[in-house]
């Protein structure tokens, strides 16, 4: 599996990351190097093997239906570049 420049640009756009043509060309090489490295795993025959979901044989942890957290709008928005009256402020995104 390899990616071309178009794919790099599309993935960047989906993640809202601005890349120049120059950067895209460089990333294409870098990504293909990574994908090529990972592709070595394709050599292993995994026919009939269940995908591993955890390193330790354990079951999913669950919580009870109890409210344990909240009323901390100030803390939640503390790291935001802009906030007002408990809201996060972001550039206008209306369609």
């Amino acid at each position: 599996m390899a990616v071309d420049t178009e794919t790099v640009k599309r993935v960047a756009r989906l993640s809202r990351i601005a890349v120049t043509d120059e950067e895209a060309a460089r990333m294409e090489g870098e990504l293909n190097a990574i994908l090529g490295f990972v592709a070595q795993l394709d050599e292993v025959d995994v026919e009939g093997v269940e995908p591993m979901t955890s390193a330790a044989p354990t079951t999913m942890k669950k919580r009870q239906d109890v409210v344990t957290e909240g009323d901390q709008a100030e803390a939640i928005t503390a790291n935001a570049p802009l906030s007002d009256d408990g809201f996060f402020l972001v550039p206008k995104v209306v369609e």
């Binding site: 919580r63 239906d65 909240g70």
Partner: peptide
């Protein structure tokens, strides 16, 4: 009472970001 993956309340009509874990 609480959200799918957190202990924040699901109550409708609260102050902005009051129900956030």
């Amino acid at each position: 009472r609480a959200k799918l993956f957190s202990g924040a309340s699901t109550e409708f009509g609260k102050a902005p970001n009051a129900n956030v874990a």
